[in-house]
Design a protein around this nucleic acid. Sequence first.
DNA 1: ATTGAAACCGTACAGTA
DNA 2: TACTGTACGGTTTCAAT
Lengths: 154, 154
Amino acid sequence: MANEVQSLDEIDQAMLEALAGNARISLKELAQQVGLSSPSAAERLRRLEERGVVKAFTIDLDPAAVGYPLQAIVRVRPLPGQLHMVERIIQDIPEIVECDKVTGEDCFIARLVVRSMAELDGLLDKVAERAETNTAMIKASPVKRRLPPLSRKR
Amino acid sequence: MANEVQSLDEIDQAMLEALAGNARISLKELAQQVGLSSPSAAERLRRLEERGVVKAFTIDLDPAAVGYPLQAIVRVRPLPGQLHMVERIIQDIPEIVECDKVTGEDCFIARLVVRSMAELDGLLDKVAERAETNTAMIKASPVKRRLPPLSRKR
DNA sequence: ATTGAAACCGTACAGTA
DNA sequence: TACTGTACGGTTTCAAT
């Protein structure tokens, strides 16, 4: 498949920024914010989805507000021969809200939410016999999830 | 301020799951999916926002589709006395799309997007004199961003 | 939480540059 | 090819229950 990266013009960029701020604004308001008519804005948005630029419209939850006051980042280094089993165990722990497979000594880096340190301990036990783990509790988030720079000079 | 965690009933949970899948569905469709009338669904959604459960409606972009084929997770350990300066530098690098401050030897764990390894090298140079860094390139994402379990009985 | 009516919005279409 | 204005049908919102 053709996987070429087309560039985003200024209107596309403005649309993505507006939607990153509030994905539920009406097409009419979106159109106004970028200086287009609604049908134009609708068509551009449709194409951004079609091109795969926008993967999803989604929500940011506050974990604390749904009962998870603690968050951690866990680096996971499976023991020899345990990589696939460890990956499956990670996918089956619903408190793990994100996990990447990376280069280097650690195979996986996971982000998880928990209600208590006791619960964290219970979750880490699930891989304890198959992997070494290194856990860092999150104290603050100096950069909240944000868009990468879209204004590429090329 | 009162920061009590109220519980989410089954309808709230279903609404959050539906919106996590597509934050732009109409209130009417949302209402149908959870078995309510539109005004009821609208009012519940308003209250979930008011309570801070839903922090934002946002979009997931595909970094590769906007010109960033590489992603990395960088652990950052500032040298003595450099913590605040390093934090400021991190916030000023727009390619860092997320950064947490954590317990343990590493002070910060950042996620960033880049166009090339050369660009990564240039970004790491910005803190090189003030912090040790440890970089892991992301090869895959076995768990994509997902909601924590909402159903737990408390 | 629901209904029904009024206001509002999304979308298809025809026309313009 | 991309945009605009328009009109219709569908959606959101509000009042009353």
